[in-house]
Design a binder for these strands. Sequence first.
DNA 1: TCTGGGGTCCTAGGACCC
DNA 2: TCTGGGGTCCTAGGACCC
Length: 420
Amino acid sequence: VLFSLIDCNNFYVSCERVFNPALEKKPVLVLSNNDGCVIARSNESKSLGIPMGVPVHQIKDIIERHQIICFSSNFALYGDLSNRVMHTIVDWLPDSEIYSVDEAFSRLDNMALKCPAQYCQDLRQAIYQHLGIPVSVGLAPTKVLAKLANYLAKKHTETGVFYLHKPEVIERALKHVAASDIWGVGKKLGERLKTLHIHSAWDLRCCDPHEARKHCNISLQKIILELRGESCLDLEKPAPPKSIRCSRSFREVVTSFTDLSEALSTYAANACSKARVHKLKPSVLTVFLNTNPFQKNKPQYSEASKLKLLVPSNDTREIISQATGLLREVFKKGVEYKKVGILLSHFEAQEGSQGDLFHFFDDEKSQLQMRTLDDINARFGKDALFIASQGGKKPWKIQRKQVSSRYTTHWDELVRVYCR
DNA sequence: TCTGGGGTCCTAGGACCC
DNA sequence: TCTGGGGTCCTAGGACCC
């Protein structure tokens, strides 16, 4: 068995650099919604000691001092470039699992490659040549080791490819790396392992897998086996989503029911259109809201409310109407809300789902209307046609002060080249 | 002043059944 | 005094991931 893990380097930053080569070798950051947190860092920013996920206001002076270039997130651009990278990977490695926006696992056994490492190096070169996105490749007999190999490829190689297969190399690598750096070992488990005197990944590897299962859980047992080179986690096939969520934090607190319900209606519409893309109808919807959890000195309120639909539906109007009802149940006057959101779950297939015996509902008409809505918005932009309850003014709208252009997905934002 | 968003899996415990 | 045994399904909450 031989797995590869291909991971784009500093993906969002690399996307910004594709269309703005002046950013090369400069410290760059990409920020979350409302320009709140750091969600991607160039190597230069990492060396300045900026951690992943820090609130921007905490590092304001470092940004100023080192003239770090900040971008608001531009998911339209990143999503499109991700698709192109994945396309190239699947071309070269048909047996692939797209694991996240910037990562893919692949199986290379069955491919009769003379030199897998060289093949991956060529692939890496092709991706860079076609798209300008640098990637790193880890190769190993299990997914967990491939993750580690990728980490080593980023840190310790010039070529960007690391093949982890010789037992003595694996041992050296595991002794060199903390247990908490292993894929699947998070903060909580890492701390617990430390109390058991398990510090390095090698310590973890030497644990009894059955004991680990007994005292912790089956995930840890699998991790230990995978560290030993015994493959437990295979590639996973693409599956329909089990839940779809849409929520946003407000830049400034919201107190009025109208503002809150307009925001919620907008998120509900988003979630529904995503459900329709997958041809799924949720039968359960959950509405949740909360105050700002970081303002510890202020009164906190966080609540969720849930409803099982008599008839599953992905009709935006139906979901908005039900969601607004749920919001009314948990809304309290005088509370300063920071976030509201919706979760759709317990999906059924759009075609052939069960109706309601006692109330006739013209599903065909509903689907036709939703298709028209989706078509119009695909053609004229996401906000061309919307339900009135989504509101027009949107005072709660998120802030993105420094967005780059959607170079690859919008005609009017293409790169312009001038000739003299 | 200022702190993102969207997912999955696992487990324990309750409800229910025969 | 003394109250079985075995199974499934569902859910909430925790942990983890990118």
